[in-house]
Amino acid sequence: MTAAVIEVHDLGKRYGERDALRGIDLSIEPGCSVALFGHNGSGKTTFLKLLATLLKPTTGRVTVAGLDLARRSCAVRARVSLLLDRPFFPPRFSLEEGLRYFTDLYEQPWDEQSMKSVLERVGLRRRRLDPLNTFSRGMAQRASLACVLSRDAEILLLDEPYTGLDPDGCALVDSIVDDHSAAGGTTLLVTHEVDRGLRRSDRSIVFRGGRVVLDEPSSPELKDAVLEVLG
């Protein structure tokens, strides 16, 4: 049996009086694509942020790639790439400058050829010299995807990556997930698009009220069960 790349035991996260996550126990195998479903506020993003070390668990223990999150957070961050709703570079930076900043900060080997191919892939090559604050919502999302592509992370944590994207952009996200899986990487994909999520994943997890209420292998037949649990 392969050792789990993400091991979560009794994980909990509390904001003031409210429990965002309670008693999560999960084990995710390397190379697995996992779709995370759930209504807004069900704890999906909190779960990703905890795995990325942006948040500190209130209870429980997490290991990522065999590293204890509480003690080896820096080493965990080197293996994980999190996509949130905005690119992580200053809005006055051009896309090209932003990607240089990003890869430099993450100590990612990076050259002109890599830059060209990433910009080509996300469809922003012609806008590479434009500052981020002139980008539309969808273009900013593509810039975030460029950041994800510029890193060679073992684990991808994608929080609603389809938001604001046109059909081509959605297909781009699909191809990123597929390529990452094909290369043996692990992906956790938070989405509200149940059909797409089921197609892109090996396993589906549904969160409700900060708990895991469904955890099954993905298949088209699972759609009804997911929708029923989501209510």
Partner: peptide, 10 residues
Amino acid sequence: SVLQGILLAP
């Protein structure tokens, strides 16, 4: 978002 990016870096 810049701070988030830095906090997510190793």
